[in-house]
Design a protein around this nucleic acid. Structure first.
Length: 249
DNA sequence: AATCTCTTCAACCGCCTCCGG
DNA sequence: TCCGGAGGCGGTTGAAGAGAT
């Protein structure tokens, strides 16, 4: 059980601990987090070390106020992706998922409060039931799994050729919406979502993308679809790095 | 000056997925 | 096929500081 071992330190990090961790990462590189506490001589769990490095010590981390264009991008990406903080942060150079999440919760949630309803927990909110957010969850799949899943997907859609997933082009797989016999294939909605996204279509399977409006704001969506504030095209925005993995069958 | 309330954000927790044995 | 360990993620907490009374 993580963190259950005796005498593992918790709480705020000291300068000394930061220094030890930094030296360790500089010497051995990132990764193998289970070895980091021993290598660094830290009395911390691997997760704590990883988090400290990623959110605070890692070079090029940008701190301080979010610029207007960063805020704008966060809002638009959140409308598109929901609470996928790591993906949103991936499009904001120097920002961490934790930073983005905190900023959203402390600054932006209040401005978008009409979109949410309170839950039993006074600190948490959920989307109102009349809104739908499509949450794509791309993942890296093995070739074997891809083919099996694709076959099953197509078998399940034999009556409608329009729904067939094609192998001739790059295909982005969403995470499973359903499980079938121990492996999964994506929801039809998610397949269509990705296919349409890649084709830069504005209409996404009849669903609204924005969670805060009843109708899609075409101008905003156009902007989201075509270019973000850092000059990335939509293809780059979603396909240029992991985990937005493109699989070439 | 003291106390209370609110805000912020670093850190923790629990869960999920992947991967190798 | 199963299982356990590791990496990673999002939700949540709570300490500390800021502001209000």
């Amino acid at each position: 059980m993580e963190g259950s071992s005796l005498r593992v330190r918790k709480g705020a990090w000291t300068e000394e601990e930061d220094l030890l961790l930094k030296k360790c990462i500089e010497k051995y590189g990132e990764g193998k987090w289970h070895q980091v506490p021993a290598r660094a001589g830290l009395n911390r769990c691997r997760k704590s070390c990883r988090l400290r490095w990623l959110n605070y010590l890692k070079p090029n981390i940008k701190r301080g106020h979010f610029a207007a264009d960063e805020v704008d991008l966060i809002i638009r990406l959140h409308n598109l992706l929901g609470n996928r903080w790591s993906l949103i942060a991936g499009r904001l150079p120097g920002r961490t998922a934790n930073d983005v999440k905190n900023y959203w919760n402390t600054h932006l949630l209040k401005k978008n409060i009409d979109t949410f309803t309170k839950t039993s927990n006074p600190k948490s909110y959920q989307l109102k039931s009349n809104t739908k957010v499509i949450k794509p969850r791309p993942q890296i799949l093995s070739k074997r799994n891809f083919l099996v899943n694709l076959d099953e997907y197509n078998n399940n859609n034999n009556n409608n050729n329009n729904n067939r997933a094609e192998t001739s082009n790059n295909v982005v797989l969403a995470n499973c919406g359903d499980n079938h016999g121990g492996y999964c294939f994506p929801d039809h909605d998610e397949i269509m979502w990705w296919e349409n996204m890649m084709m830069n279509e504005k209409k996404v399977d009849g669903h609204q993308l924005q969670c805060s409006a009843n109708d899609i704001d075409e101008s905003v969506l156009d902007q989201i679809m075509n270019e973000d504030n850092f000059g990335n095209t939509m293809d780059e925005l979603f396909l240029d790095e992991e985990p937005w993995n493109v699989f070439n069958p």
